[in-house]
Design a binder for these strands. Structure first.
Lengths: 209, 209
DNA sequence: ATTTATACGGAACAAGGTTCCGTTTATCAA
DNA sequence: TTGATAAACGGAACCTTGTTCCGTATAAAT
């Protein structure tokens, strides 16, 4: 169908040698499924029918189920992928901006991420054992990302040094939840407020015991 | 089928006259459905199949759906009925006990109610528009009930006067949630603690400005 | 080019919510 | 007491959604 050979057999990192390479169409479909699911979830929420996702990906449900034995596995995969994207954005922002701008930029990115997942976060915390482990992954990935940005901003004395990354992550997440009737830019205003709070008395606090 | 006539036509409070009385079997089935749903929900959670509830009530699904056009209507009805029962218990307890004993007794009753509803409360707060209005009903019914008991206990100086009923309701409700791995009488111990807290310095605080 | 392990598609199945309609029955009036 | 009739009943049938199964297609290796 498509020519995307890499460079001979065993091109991708595989532990056991002498094993057939994963078929190209399988890899491609996996990716299509994830992208399709991302689109559908964003548009219709995480309860969108499996068939709809398969169709959007141009794939049969059988294929979907081979890659994701349970519906929830697909949800988890999408969520993880988006967590990764959000975490990875930190490094890019840090490389291209001054410390505080990078921090502010990332927080915006994070808000975007959380806001788009309305319903998902709720579904996760609803005790369904199918989603176990996701909160851990969430923190394991996002906390270090934020930590780095914070440290850089603290180092140049643009941000106080007494704020815990997890508190920030949690605070912003909960700010994004009750946005049913509030204005469209409510979370943005709240985020600005938080960022200002971070700057408040930065230099003074930084050198405290 | 069963002889439960009341006292001639138009026995129940009906606004429009010259209208046929609600059929006895209809009233009876409505009640059976509510009782059956209560049992099933308690045993299998609120996600139990509609058919199962209808069967338990000795009724066809058609009948269930005439009384409750949507599944969620049945859930709401059951929940309201249990809220009512809990609220009404306050008056009974107040009539038969000393003020503080009545208060303590009711709090135990409330804990029972909340603990039995595990999963329901979660389902309600999960933003499903089908359950809108229930939280309001919850507070409208339970707060006054607790208020009365508290006032009586405050009047005889057995309980401090600076505690808001809603705070208590909420606190106990959240105490009941994270009881996944804690011991079986965890909530009881916590409730005792709260009640002791209420008594602490009752007389001293009661006469403060 | 042939072989073969892999992956694919989508029909079929299961389960749950909801609708529909022919049948039953409680109520009312004669 | 006895129809007449509106109300209520039961449950088969339908629709949607998750999941399984298997004959077919095809990428990889030879």
């Amino acid at each position: 169908m498509r020519s995307n050979r890499e460079s001979g057999p065993h091109a991708q990192g595989d532990a056991s040698p002498e094993k057939r390479q994963v078929r190209a169409d399988a890899r491609r479909n996996l990716d299509e499924l994830l992208k399709a699911a991302m689109r559908i979830f964003a548009a219709s929420g995480v309860d969108a029918p499996v068939r709809e996702i398969a169709k959007e990906a141009g794939v049969g449900v059988g294929t979907l189920y081979r890659h994701f034995p349970q519906r929830s596995d697909l949800v988890k995969a999408v969520f993880k992928r988006e967590i990764d994207a959000c975490a990875d954005a930190a490094a890019v922002l840090a490389a291209r901006n001054e410390p505080f701008a990078a921090l502010a930029g990332w927080m915006n990115r994070y808000v975007e991420f959380i806001a788009a997942k309305r319903g998902l976060a709720a579904a996760l915390h609803s005790g369904d054992p199918a989603y176990e482990g996701l909160p851990v992954y969430f923190e394991a990935r996002l906390r270090p990302a934020l930590q780095g940005l914070l440290d850089a901003a603290i180092a140049v004395q643009e941000v106080r040094d007494d704020v815990k990354p997890n508190d920030l992550l949690r605070a912003v997440a909960s700010l994004c939840v009750p946005t049913y009737d509030a204005g469209p830019d409510y979370t943005d205003r709240m985020l600005k407020l938080l960022l200002d709070g971070l700057r408040y008395g930065a230099a003074a606090r930084t050198s405290r015991p």
